[in-house]
Design a protein around this nucleic acid. Structure first.
Length: 553
DNA sequence: CACGGGTGCGCG
DNA sequence: AAAGCGCGCACCCGTG
């Protein structure tokens, strides 16, 4: 059962579709009546709600305590189908760009605001019933409709999860955060640097004999470091670390603390934490590969340093779960590399790779695999590649093929069919120019370099994108399992509060925490089966029940 | 004074 | 200790 929602003036129009996607019934109601209607329909059965944009509909429902099981986010699905190789000849993909291709308005964080994205009069009208039909036509005509259907369902479930994460918020102890900042940075001084930063500044000015040295200005800092006799090309910490000078230690310490202050200091705390919750805005589909991005608050870059401020409510616990070596396992599964799947049989896949004899140490295995998936060409990681290729020919061959396709300017696709963008027109022109008769060596080399660069992107795309699909399936499965573990509103049951590519945090009543950990495991196994069938790859997940996020792993 | 590119660093 | 991929954000700094 599909129920399509459309905003019509102050009212909501609900189109009820039958099994053949024909409109069976249309009804209108005031917006205020929608939560009650949705709750009532959810109670009877779980229809699939079809709407233009989850961000425009779901926060208001959640604010009324209404949770939905399934939806179709037409905006996100449209973006996938428009680019997917499998639907390249569909009406969706071949049409001129239309209202469904418009850049979505930026969501500034006012979580809970009702219909915050409604901008009457902006853009051409969208007809969700028609768009949904076009999308289904595109999927039905594709070579593997079940894969694309799964992708669209997973993407849409992700949109629900993202809204629920913002709604629930990450439990955040401002007092713990404040204490941690004061401990690291010293007391705040009105209008000046915190005490500890100030004393580090004095120390490095003294050591470099540069009384006006300004570490906040890369240009000035570089000039003054050189004047002090240091042969540095930049002010990057990694480069400074290699220098031996008494001023380096305070400078590195200053940079570290300055980063903490500017990125996650008191200003961040005042801006992003309200009523004991950090409510970041997640952006499903925000990354080309299908990973999520975030908008405001830097949720996906939350430093380990401040995670101690993440504490469960009294009587509750955090269940922190991390998919171990997700990307190499995904590569093993999608390439059908039996030897690599076997290496992943144990707790730690890198140890398993060492056991094959292909590499000598866990570190070599780790960096070798990273190099294989990112396209590393130098250093120790590249040195172990021949051995990895011999031991895991299918896995390494798989990413090599993806790289070669990218170098030719072709698209590649993930397991479920998300397709990489093509290089720019400029890129193709450069390649054509370099293959011409009179192309000079400089031009040829630049074109080769650009080709290799795009090849590294497509090489990584297939793995990163498929890992993102696994994570979506994992969360989609998990959110339903968590819902069934309790009763009442979303935030009164075990619920997701954080997501970080291959890691989730669940906030759960203490007595349910261990059961939640088991559901997290079961959901991971289910995600593997959904994506790869009975492929012999185990997706290991580590779980920890903790009272501080900092205590996980 | 606003804006956009570059730098640097946090995360996976 | 490895150097490849994908991001967001704060800040500086040159330009208009």
């Amino acid at each position: 059962m599909h129920l399509v929602l459309a905003a019509v003036g102050d009212e909501v129009e609900v189109s009820v579709l039958d099994a053949h996607r024909a409109v069976q019934d249309v009804r209108r109601m005031p917006r205020a009546a929608l939560p009650g209607y949705v709750a009532e329909r959810e109670q009877r059965a779980q229809p699939r709600w079809v709407w233009d944009d989850t961000r425009a509909w779901y926060p208001a429902l959640l604010a009324e305590g209404v949770r939905v099981e399934r939806c179709v986010d037409l905006r996100l699905c449209h973006a996938i189908l428009r680019r997917a190789a499998a639907t390249a000849s569909s009406a969706i993909a071949t049409a001129e760009a239309g209202p469904w291709d418009e850049e979505p308005p930026r969501v500034t964080a006012h979580p809970g605001a009702l219909f915050e994205l409604e901008t009457p009069g902006a853009g051409a009208p969208r007809d969700p019933v028609r768009e949904f039909a076009l999308q289904r036509d595109a999927v039905d005509a594709s070579p593997d409709p079940s894969a694309l259907s799964l992708l669209l369902a997973a993407e849409s479930a992700g949109a629900l999860v993202a809204a629920e994460l913002t709604h629930a918020g990450l439990p955040w102890r401002a007092d713990v955060h404040d204490a941690l900042l004061t401990e690291a940075l010293g007391r705040r001084t009105p209008g000046g640097r915190p005490e500890r930063l100030e004393s580090l500044l004095v120390a490095m000015r003294d050591a470099f004999d540069a009384p006006h040295l300004n570490p906040d200005s890369p240009v000035e800092l570089l000039r003054d470091l050189r004047a002090a006799g240091l042969a540095v090309e930049s002010t990057r910490s990694s480069e400074l670390k290699r220098q031996r000078h008494p001023g380096i230690a305070p400078l590195l310490e200053y940079k570290k603390l300055s980063r903490l202050l500017t990125a996650n200091g008191w200003t961040w705390l005042d801006t992003w934490v309200r009523d004991g919750r950090f409510r970041p805005v997640y952006v499903p589909g925000g990354v080309v590969t299908g990973r999520w991005a975030s908008d405001g608050g830097g949720a996906l870059q939350l430093p380990h340093e401040v995670r101690d401020a993440v504490r469960p409510d009294p009587g509750w616990r955090l269940v922190v779960a991390d998919a171990a070596q997700l990307e190499p396992r995904v590569l093993a599964a999608m390439s059908g590399d039996r030897a690599m799947a076997d290496a992943g049989r144990g707790e730690d896949m890198y140890d398993g790779i060492v056991a094959t004899g292909a590499v000598r140490s866990r570190e070599e295995a780790k960096y070798g695999m990273l190099g294989a998936m990112y396209g590393g060409t130098t250093g120790p990681s590249a040195r172990v590649m021949p051995n990895l290729a011999r031991t895991f020919p299918r896995a390494i061959g798989f990413v090599e093929d993806a790289a070669r396709a990218g170098e030719r300017g072709e698209s590649v696709t993930t397991r479920l069919g998300r397709t990489s963008p093509r290089p720019s027109e400029r890129w193709f022109e450069q390649q054509r120019a370099a293959s011409g008769e009179e192309a000079g060596p400089a031009l040829t080399e630049r074109a080769r370099s650009e080709a290799r660069s795009w090849g590294r992107f497509t090489r990584n795309f297939v793995v990163q994108g498929t890992a993102a699909e696994w994570a979506l399936c994992w969360m989609a499965e998990l959110r339903n399992r968590l819902w069934r573990m309790g009763s009442g509103r979303l935030e009164e049951r075990p619920h997701l509060v954080f997501f970080l590519h291959d890691e989730v945090v669940v906030h759960a009543p203490q007595e349910l925490a261990e059961a939640v950990a088991a559901e997290v495991q079961a959901a991971a196994a289910q995600a593997g089966r959904v994506l790869f069938g009975e492929a012999p790859v185990e997706f290991r997940v580590t779980t920890a029940v903790v009272e501080s996020y900092a205590d996980a792993k």
